[in-house]
Computed example of a mutant assay.
Amino acid sequence: MSALALQLKDYRLTTAEILYHMPDHPHLLQSYVWQDYDISPEFPQLRRFLDFWSRNLDGKLHSVKVDSQKLIGQSELRRADCMLSLH
Rank of each mutant, 00 (worst) to 15 (best):
L4E: 05
L4I: 07
A5C: 09
L6I: 08
L6H: 02
L8C: 06
L8I: 08
K9E: 09
D10H: 05
Y11S: 05
Y11N: 04
R12M: 04
T15S: 09
T15E: 10
T15L: 02
A16T: 01
E17Q: 10
H21A: 08
M22F: 11
P23E: 11
P23C: 06
P23N: 08
P26R: 13
L29F: 15
L29G: 12
L29R: 06
S31M: 08
S31G: 04
S31F: 00
W34V: 05
W34H: 08
Q35Y: 08
Q35E: 13
D38H: 03
I39F: 00
S40K: 07
S40N: 14
P41W: 02
F43E: 00
F43W: 02
P44S: 10
L46T: 02
R47W: 05
R48V: 08
F49T: 08
F49S: 04
L50K: 03
L50A: 10
D51S: 13
F52W: 06
F52G: 13
W53V: 09
N56Y: 11
D58R: 11
D58W: 07
G59L: 08
G59W: 02
K60L: 14
L61P: 00
H62E: 13
H62I: 12
H62G: 03
S63D: 15
S63A: 15
V64G: 01
V64W: 01
D67W: 03
S68T: 07
Q69A: 13
K70I: 08
I72G: 04
I72D: 07
I72A: 12
G73A: 12
S75D: 12
S75E: 03
E76V: 12
E76F: 11
R79M: 09
R79G: 01
R79F: 03
A80R: 09
A80T: 12
C82D: 03
L84H: 12
L84C: 12
S85G: 06
S85R: 09
S85P: 00
L86P: 00
L86E: 11
H87L: 10
